[in-house]
Every structure is written in structure tokens, then in C-alpha cells.
């Protein structure tokens, strides 16, 4: 498989073609960053821009606080970008929706680690199980200019969770 095929895996092209979680709720306040806190829910919304190309994402995360562990109830987003960024947000939606925050933190950290392997992969079965479709982004690591594309949505998620002020927000708030 050449580098281009490794970069543009079918999984990525499929997600880019029909991304999941797209479309903000009707009451979402434009592209501004906001946090709302209810009795047993909270939510945060973040707007991120890739300064290289002007790509944007506005991502809103709703967290359910009623159980023992905070759980992501929904991730909705709107934005424009390249196939890598759009597919990455789509995969993010699938991986994060319904997950508890500890898992969200682990997925986010592992995904960033994967992109740092320059295309080699993590060579770790547990990590591969955790990442699911996100394993398709292994090849992005070979193209340093594209890593930012793959991280656009994840940066928005981290920021939105911090804004939401969820107890136990993943501490690795690096972008």
C-alpha cells in the first residue's frame, strides 16, 4: 500500500462522504463558545480554526451527569474542511458518543499518540481496540502537514469539555 492509499483509506473516504454527527441543534448559539449547566446535564461548545487553511468546526458536547460517571450523551458539530478533518470528526462522534469521560480521555490521548508515530502505528492491540475506525488515520502521521487536520475536531472536543466544566474532565488539555 503506497503512502497515498495509506492516507486516504476507504474508511476515511466513507466517513468524509457521509459524516456522522453533523448538524448542530437548532438552539445552538452560532459559532460562539458556550457552556450550559443543568441539574444532571451540562454541555459545552467550542469553535476551532485551522489557521493554515481556514477550516472551521463548531462542536457541541452534551454530558449526562446522572450516573456514577459522567457520560457523553451526544456530540454534534458543523464545519467545513478537508476529507481528513471531516472524517476525523465523524469518527470522533462515533467513538465518543455514549462513552464515559475516562474512556473519552483515553481515546483522545491514544489518537494523538497514533498520529505521532509517523505512520508506523502503535503496535498495541488494546490501543487498536480502543480506536476502532480511528486506526485508519495511522497513515496521516506520515504527512506532518495533515496532522492538524486530523486533530481539529479533537481540539474542539477537549475545549468543549473544559468549557462544560464536567467534574473529572481529562487533564490532557493539550492541543
Amino acid at each position: 500500500m503506497d503512502a497515498m492509499e495509506q492516507l486516504y483509506q476507504q474508511v476515511i473516504l466513507d466517513h468524509a462522504r457521509a459524516p456522522h454527527g453533523r448538524g448542530l441543534p437548532a438552539d445552538a448559539p452560532g459559532t460562539t463558545a458556550v457552556a450550559t449547566v443543568g441539574h444532571d446535564t451540562c454541555s459545552g461548545q467550542s469553535h476551532q480554526v485551522n489557521t493554515t487553511c481556514g477550516d472551521e468546526v463548531t462542536l457541541r458536547v452534551d454530558v449526562d451527569l446522572s450516573g456514577e460517571q459522567p457520560v457523553v450523551r451526544d456530540v454534534r458539530w458543523e464545519g467545513s474542511g478537508c476529507s481528513i478533518s471531516q472524517a476525523s470528526i465523524s469518527v470522533l462522534h462515533d467513538l465518543v458518543t455514549g462513552a464515559d469521560l475516562e474512556t473519552v480521555g483515553a481515546v483522545s490521548t491514544t489518537f494523538r499518540a497514533l498520529l505521532g508515530t509517523r505512520g508506523a502505528g502503535l503496535d498495541d492491540e488494546a490501543a487498536e481496540d480502543l480506536l476502532g475506525d480511528a486506526n485508519a488515520f495511522t497513515g496521516v502521521g506520515k504527512f506532518p502537514a495533515r496532522i492538524k487536520c486530523a486533530l481539529l475536531g479533537w481540539a474542539a472536543l477537549t475545549d468543549a469539555l473544559i468549557l462544560a466544566g464536567v467534574p473529572g474532565t481529562p487533564a490532557e488539555a493539550t492541543r
Binding site: C53, G54, G81
Partner: peptide, 29 residues
Amino acid sequence: GVHAHDVGQVLDDAGVAVRVGHHCAQPVH
């Protein structure tokens, strides 16, 4: 239907170096 970054990637694969993005001129875009 194809984002400029993706266009640039295909061109790069053919050895063709171009600029993709807003070229520091967002208003005209």
C-alpha cells in the same frame, strides 16, 4: 467537492508543489 488540502495532497503525490489554503488572503476567498 474536493477540499484544497486534498487536492494538494494528490498533486504532491505527483511531485507537483502548489499552495493550498487561503494564501493569507481570506477576504478575497
